[in-house]
Design a binder for these strands. Structure first.
Lengths: 207, 207
DNA sequence: GCTCTAACGGGTCTGTGGTTCCGTTAGGGG
DNA sequence: CCCCTAACGGAACCACAGACCCGTTAGAGC
């Protein structure tokens, strides 16, 4: 009678964890191959080798499952490289994002995740959290540049990192142009120059 | 027996045109209010005051209808302003995009359109065409800046315009951060400085 | 290793988005 | 102004995603 809450919270070990893992991987595959529109929880259950009832009970809706997938993806982090210069670090970041988005599977997955987030507040929150974590991981390279004197005091490190990614996502989702490495390098250069010039200094002192 | 092609092509005037107009406006409203996910052709037909059979026959699928809506939107163009300086023109552009994306209805509509494009090639092509037209409309202000000597010869005007929009769309779709006017102004400043520095010169001559 | 019950899963039912059928309305050429 | 037929529209039909029921499996505490 007195249930503790959502299914999977009282006995999260063993089988439950295996099922979650299998379903999230299946969801990732399905999103990648079918896109967000062509998604079907029964198909995901089949891919994962679990009963579809389980998927409906644990996650309820497609967007709920995508939100959980994003939370899971947010856990895993890939460490960043350090080159010693702002432009070098931003270029490394831009090329990492570029590689991810141009990879056929990963690119399709991210497109689907972003599409899912446009239609559901919880999924959107999960997506924002995922990118917030990724941006925070790279922000230190901007702060180091400030310490080296490459960028002015008060520079918004996270905004600089976002500025590097933005043109790549714009090409992927909106303009549809060729997403070659030159686009990534230009994005890094533009962000580096703008950061050096103080464009990303918080609360500009009237100018 | 020998049909000429798609419905609506042989007798495109009068009633057919009125129906198309009503359905596209209804689709716009539905996309804005329900988002791409919660879209239903029967609901659109109801809103438009036409039979749902008509909508299915003329457009077939939701994505087909969205693609047609984008083609229709691409027709209407809003003229740009000219301020006399690159930064001024880019700021005007950034604020225009900012106003569009922060308007509750327009912002929701564009989110839905972009989401629709991620899942269907025809819709994606229509979206790319729409933005290509808008970008081309603003490109002249960059070319004028080149003539004035504000930016180096060979600057890719369209890429500069895209660089202005990119951070705004990144915030709207991905980071979820506050989309205030400062973001727009920073985007314009960053693009202007990068353009001046030659970041957007085509085929950089090694350097 | 026994028990209790959280969590899984096959099978069935149902609401609704999408299709088809066929009669009705109204462009547009003669 | 009349006719022909392109295009519209109501209604019945169908398939399938998602909800529900109830028996089965396997964590976790003693």
């Amino acid at each position: 009678m007195a249930d503790g809450g959502e299914p999977g919270t009282l006995r999260p070990g063993g089988r439950t964890a295996r099922v979650r893992e299998a379903v999230l991987r299946a969801a990732e595959d399905a999103l990648t191959e079918e896109g967000f529109t062509g998604l079907d929880l029964a198909d995901i259950a089949r891919r994962a080798g679990v009963g579809k009832t389980t998927v409906y009970r644990r996650w309820g809706t497609v967007t709920g499952l995508v939100a959980d997938l994003l939370a899971d993806m947010a856990e895993q982090s890939s460490p960043r490289t350090e080159t010693g210069s702002l432009l070098g670090d931003l270029t490394a970041n831009a090329r990492l994002v570029h590689r991810t988005l141009t990879d056929p599977r990963q690119g399709a997955l991210f497109k689907a995740l972003i599409a899912a987030a446009t239609g559901d507040a919880r999924t959107a929150a999960a997506l924002h959290r995922f990118y917030d974590i990724r941006v925070r991981e790279w922000a230190p390279c901007v702060r180091q540049a400030v310490e080296r004197g490459e960028a002015p005091e008060g520079t918004d490190a996270q905004e600089v990192i976002r500025a590097v990614s933005a043109p790549l996502y714009y090409h992927l989702l909106i303009s549809g142009g060729r997403l070659d490495e030159a686009v990534a390098d230009r994005a890094a250069q533009a962000a580096a120059i703008a950061a050096r010039s103080g464009v990303y200094v918080r609360q500009p002192a009237g100018g």
